[in-house]
């Protein structure tokens, strides 16, 4: 493998990793605070991607600006989802909770199939084929924008969790739900906000990702499994872990793909998952450590 190819694979891996982090951060927030595994996470990403596509196609809104339209809609969805489905599900065993979110995932996929059909839809702009050259290697513009948004979002998350009351409350609830309740913290309200913000992050990811890729009813599935791997590798509920896990998965996958074959590369994130589970089951950056 030549130096150029290696550097390109490294840069692509970093970009992909940042995009993966953008998808996984909401998943880890919901799990960290509520201990709910949301299997429908990818489907909300799919809805956000359709949101970005519709805003661009019918309203002529640039995907970057569409973020400000789609993110609030996704937050509202999270808010309603908590009241309508998750809150009742909190009272039942965890396996039932999983069945609820898994069912929701399939329901959303098939509803999207009914509404949008199976066709792939694209957002085509001038910058779809623009790129930034860094010496012999390059990063494509839509991917670069999504990666940048991811870094900004993770920085914002860090500030909110460390410096604001809401962040403090969320950290408290995630450490000890009963202790927080005894201190007079509104657990239901905190959960509702966690769900709203968790899905709201997808409102940022969706429009930016649809301009780099495409959208179809099953596109969320491409990212759900990878997001789970990242969250588990990084340490469930840990924000620092999401970034480390996502970059690790992105780079490992990209280098393996350029060095070996695509099929081997596809197995790499899962091999990494097994390795981490065996050697460090709490994840690379356990949740307690990053708080």
């Amino acid at each position: 493998m030549s130096t150029t190819i290696f550097l390109q694979a490294l840069l692509s891996g970093l970009t992909n990793g940042a995009i993966y982090a953008l998808v996984a951060v909401g998943l880890t927030l919901v799990f960290g605070v509520m201990r709910i595994v949301n299997f429908a996470h990818g489907e909300f990403l799919m809805l956000a991607m359709y949101g970005g596509y519709l805003a661009f196609t019918f309203l002529g809104i640039d995907p970057i600006l569409a973020v400000f339209l789609v993110a609030p809609v996704l937050m509202l969805m999270g808010y309603l989802l908590f009241g309508g489905l998750i809150r009742p599900a909190l009272k039942v065993p965890e396996i039932n909770q999983m069945a609820v979110t898994l069912g929701l995932s399939l329901l959303l996929q098939y509803l999207a199939l009914v509404v949008f059909k199976a066709d792939n839809l694209l957002v085509t702009q001038e910058r779809s084929t623009a790129s930034i050259w860094l010496g012999p290697v390059l990063i494509q513009m839509p991917q670069a924008i999504a990666a940048l948004a991811s870094i900004i979002l993770l920085g914002l998350f860090y500030v909110v969790l460390r410096k604001t009351d809401l962040g403090l409350i969320m950290r408290v609830v995630s450490q000890s739900r009963d202790g927080a309740a005894l201190s007079g913290i509104d657990i239901g309200g905190t959960y509702r906000w966690a769900m709203a913000i968790g899905l709201g992050t997808l409102g940022i990811a969706g429009p930016l990702m649809v301009s780099a890729l495409y959208v179809n009813p099953h596109v969320g599935q491409l990212f759900t499994l990878k997001a789970f791997v990242i969250v588990i590798v990084g340490g469930m509920g840990s924000f620092g872990g999401v970034l480390i896990g996502a970059l690790l998965v992105g780079i490992a996958e990209s280098i393996a793909a350029s060095w070996l074959t695509a099929s081997v590369a596809a197995a790499v994130p899962f091999a990494l998952l097994i390795l981490v589970m065996l050697l460090r089951p709490e994840g690379l950056v356990p949740a307690g450590g990053s708080r």
């Binding site: 694979a9 992909n16 995009i19 990063i139 494509q140 990209s254 793909a257």
Partner: peptide, 10 residues
């Protein structure tokens, strides 16, 4: 390559 690869620049 694998279907669904998010980045083909390499």
């Amino acid at each position: 390559f694998r279907t669904g690869t998010p980045d083909f620049s390499t």
